[in-house]
């Protein structure tokens, strides 16, 4: 059940330049699934809309959510000033999440690029399969990379070559001669396009998590659509709502 409610800040720290790691105490944690997101509200009448931010992790007691976000504008800049015991309004939990059953017992690639790395963490925790975790970063600020180690083999690519493979996530896959039956990915659009093509060439399924500017987050405003191969059963046109039909889509079904 979706709801708007007030969460309590448990902790926040900057884990890389302009990248923040925020733990929120909220009852919504009990229903959170890997790949879902929440809307976080700035406390300012000039910036009204909730900011869609993916769920990075849920604590063991399912009483708190972790979000890791980059400062992208006024709203996220405001969030970065939140301190322990501050209150913040959130809307959630939103979106479909990654399909866990599909990967059970299979060789899985879990691919995160840049600020697309965070939602892969809770997925790595919950997915029961043989996991190769492939993380792409711009430089040597490998935020969250250490958190992944206990859930699978971690491979890193950096654009500047300061850590791991110099290049992108697909370069790491090639360099290490990795293979998979199924892919889960979240990251910038050029990476997702490359992942879609990689999967299509090998005839394997890829689930990719998309983002788009949103207003409502609950499927009403039709602001955040992605073009689809087939007519969508809800919209009856070749558009799906990223907030509710997604954000996770079978790469084959979306035209990106």
């Amino acid at each position: 059940m979706k709801e708007k409610s007030t969460a309590k800040v448990l902790s926040q720290q900057e884990i890389a330049p302009r990248i923040y790691d925020l733990w929120l105490e909220t009852a919504l944690a009990a229903q959170a699934k890997p790949g879902q997101f929440i809307g976080v509200y700035p406390g300012n009448a000039a910036t009204l809309l909730p900011r869609p931010i993916s769920i990075c992790e849920v604590n063991g007691e399912r009483t708190a959510l972790r979000i890791v976000y980059r400062i992208a504008g006024k709203g996220t800049a405001e969030f970065s000033a939140l301190r322990e015991n501050d209150r913040v309004d959130i809307l959630g939990t939103l979106g479909n999440g990654f399909p866990l059953e599909e990967g059970r017992g299979k060789h899985c690639f879990l691919i995160g690029g840049g600020i697309g790395v965070p939602p892969i963490l809770q997925l790595a925790k919950k997915l029961e399969g043989d996991k190769a975790i492939i993380l792409g970063y711009r430089d040597g600020n490998l935020f969250l990379a250490e958190d992944f180690a206990k859930y699978g083999q971690v491979y890193v690519a950096t654009e500047d070559g300061s850590e791991g493979t110099k290049g992108n996530v697909l370069d790491t896959i090639a360099e290490n001669a990795l293979e998979a039956d199924i892919i889960y990915a979240c990251g910038p659009m050029p990476m997702l396009r490359a992942v879609k093509q990689y999967a299509a060439e090998r005839g394997i399924r890829a689930y990719i998590s998309l983002e788009e500017h949103m207003a409502c987050g609950v499927g009403a405003c039709l602001g955040c659509v992605v073009k689809t191969k087939e007519a969508n059963p809800h919209s009856h046109v070749h558009n799906a709502r990223i907030c509710t039909d997604g954000p996770v889509f079978d790469a084959e079904e979306v035209d990106i």
Partner: peptide, 28 residues
């Protein structure tokens, strides 16, 4: 009939409000 609406981005926040150009996407 069904309308596909406009390309994205379709929404943007502005001071104390928002802009939308959904283009009346609807299922008919």
């Amino acid at each position: 009939v069904p309308w596909p609406g406009n390309p994205t981005p379709r929404v943007a926040e502005v001071y104390g409000g928002m802009l939308n150009a959904i283009g009346l996407q609807n299922p008919g």
